[in-house]
């Protein structure tokens, strides 16, 4: 506690670099993004300063032949698909991670460390390489199609790629370590005698899992859910490579608006919506976990 006590000036300049870097490359730019979202579209890409709700309007409506506003569900569908896929990914990750984390937590220490290492390892491999790997497996003439053909199950199938399922698979694969690690952390603290006590009090395995193990693993699952859900909302690589760019998500919708220099204010408006969604998730999480944390303390 007293390490910095006799250099009070360090309290200021020690934090200064972090504030300067974050202020310049994150806080200020995000302010600009919000401004641009309310700005106007430039003639040749880029944008103009101003105040207009046009970009947000564009998310919901399009202009018809005679300049009248028509409701356009196209972008709402993308937002809904993003939310749905992120939620589904989170749910699948939780369903997979919980038994795996439990199994790892029950192993003797050496094996446990080895298994945690094995779970973490793929996560260190470049994201693009991991997504690319699924491209080879699922792709046209890919590993799966070949295998199915080899055993004579199918003659020829349309690509397994470029649909929601492929994106889902890629997202689960990309983010599952972020679920396993926190779930494991809370499982690791789980005292084995609690399970024995539960059995001693006439609960079978199923009741023990439902009434002892799961409630105790809950903080880990909630923490993992946030860690998985938030990056899923902003996923870019999976929709482009596995979704083929046809099944758009918010991430690649934003990217295309900037990539081709097409419509910065519209892209910024979608980014603002995305940010708002993420903040909503984090706020709900903070509100949910705080009372529990206070009760425990």
């Amino acid at each position: 506690m007293s390490g910095a006590r006799f250099r009070p000036d360090f309290r200021l300049w020690g934090l200064l670099p972090a504030w300067v870097i974050m202020g310049f490359t994150l806080i200020l730019p995000i302010g600009i993004v919000v401004l641009v979202a309310f700005g106007t579209r430039g003639a040749y890409g880029g944008f103009g300063w101003g105040f207009s709700g046009a970009s947000f309007q564009q998310i919901l409506f399009q202009k018809g032949w005679t300049e009248e506003l028509e409701f356009n569900p196209q972008y709402l569908e993308i937002i809904a698909r993003t939310l749905w896929l992120a939620a589904l990914t989170t749910a699948i990750c939780a369903a997979l991670a919980t038994p795996v984390a439990y199994y790892i937590a029950c192993q003797p220490p050496k094996r446990r460390a080895a298994l945690v290492y094995l779970v973490t390892l793929p996560f260190w491999v470049s994201m693009i390489v991991r997504v690319y790997a699924w491209l080879i497996i699922l792709g046209n003439d890919g590993v799966i199609e070949k295998s199915l053909r080899a055993v004579g199950l199918v003659e020829d199938i349309d690509s397994l790629l470029f649909n929601n399922t492929a994106m889902l698979l890629g997202m689960v694969y990309s983010y599952i370590p972020l679920m396993i690690l926190p779930v494991f952390a809370s499982m690791e603290k789980l005292d084995g005698t609690l399970i024995e006590a539960s059995h001693d009090l006439y609960a079978n395995r199923w009741v023990t899992a439902r009434r002892v193990i799961l409630p105790l693993a809950r903080p880990g699952i909630v923490a993992g859910a946030v860690l998985v859900f938030v990056p899923c909302l902003g996923a870019v690589l999976e929709p482009i490579l596995l979704g083929g760019g046809k099944q758009m998500l918010m991430g690649n919708l934003i990217q295309t608006q900037f990539g081709g220099g097409r419509n910065w204010p519209f892209g910024a408006a979608v980014a603002v919506v995305l940010m708002a969604l993420v903040m909503l998730v984090l706020m709900i999480n903070a509100l949910r976990t705080r009372p529990a944390g206070e009760a425990a303390a």
């Binding site: 504030w19 994150l26 806080i27 902003g234 910024a268 980014a271 995305l274 940010m275 993420v278």
Partner: peptide, 26 residues
């Protein structure tokens, strides 16, 4: 300050990317 230091973890990366792109162009 803790929030600021961890800010990049709280934002989807695509938003950060868009933000710095606009900043640098400005």
């Amino acid at each position: 300050s803790e929030v600021v230091v961890n800010l990049p973890l709280l934002l989807p990366e695509i938003v950060v990317a868009v933000a710095v792109l606009i900043l640098f162009s400005q």
